[in-house]
């Protein structure tokens, strides 16, 4: 089973006034079979963590390590990380004009597997993945994310998750912008993925709403660029009741 290990990760971004540190020593281990939720207020660095693991060039890793089954992830190119088994469902999926969803999915699948998928089963798989997420098969002919509604973009991320079937999935606020029906559909997709048994899920969110549908084994409260507290599902309930106040105070004292 796969293990993603993040150790003392420090990340900064370049700003006009020089580098700005956003992640300030993140420690986190996600093993296959586990679902982790990271919850934190706006601007606490959740997306920064997700993007840094995926290798977005905007983020500079200043210290720390990220390994997948012992392999140095930070040393890999973005596409190598994906082929190694990491998947990031993005908070803001990108539009790629002129590239059809069908072409995109097939190209990605071929890259991940190292060989082209069998045509006959592939078309069926794509249509099933789309319909499982309540997306019309005609989405295959549309350009990637172009003109998709916010909710369709998120569902399209989960379609990709199911088709590419990585070892570890990082879902960055996949729940935001979804109405309750879409939230259920997306959650079912994530649960299908997780129910394979050996998959790791890192669910990033700042609402507890999605945790009614996806049961985390561990909850991490993320404040000001690091994990402020860890616990089980009960921690999410506390957040639901009391919000982030307690943690924010603790962090300003520190």
């Amino acid at each position: 089973m796969a293990t993603l290990e993040i150790r003392d990760l420090h990340v900064s971004v370049d700003t006009e006034n020089g580098p700005k540190e956003i992640l300030r020593g993140v420690d986190l281990t996600i093993a296959g079979g586990q679902t982790h939720a990271i919850m934190g207020p706006n601007g606490s660095g959740k997306s920064t963590l997700a993007y840094s693991i995926a290798g977005h060039p905007k983020y500079n890793i200043t210290s720390g390590t990220v390994t997948l089954d012992g392999e140095d992830v930070l040393d890999m190119a973005v596409d190598e990380r994906a082929r190694a088994g990491l998947f990031l469902a993005m908070q803001y999926p990108v539009e790629v004009p002129g590239v059809s969803v069908a072409n995109f999915l097939r190209t990605a699948k071929t890259a991940i597997d190292g060989e082209a998928p069998k045509l006959r089963t592939w078309v069926k798989d794509v249509n099933k993945a789309l319909s499982d997420l309540d997306m019309d098969p005609t989405f295959g002919q549309r350009n990637v994310n172009e003109g998709f509604s916010g909710g369709e973009k998120k569902r399209h991320e989960i379609v990709q998750l199911e088709l590419l079937n990585p070892k570890i999935a990082i879902l960055d606020e996949t729940d935001s912008g979804l109405d309750i029906d879409a939230l259920k559909i997306v959650s079912e997709g994530v649960n299908r993925f997780a129910s394979q048994g050996d998959k790791g899920v890192l669910l990033i969110t700042h609402y507890t709403r999605i945790l009614r549908y996806i049961k985390p084994d561990f909850v991490h409260v993320f404040v000001d660029g690091r994990v402020a507290e860890e616990g089980g599902p009960e921690l999410a309930e506390e957040l639901e009741a009391n919000g982030y106040e307690r943690f924010l105070k603790a962090s300003t004292k520190a």
Partner: peptide, 19 residues
């Protein structure tokens, strides 16, 4: 766009051609 495609496993050259 390049990042998005690469994050799905597509190598940089192929991603660039696709865009």
């Amino acid at each position: 766009q390049l990042f998005y495609l690469q994050a799905r496993g597509i190598p940089e050259d192929a991603a660039r051609r696709l865009v």
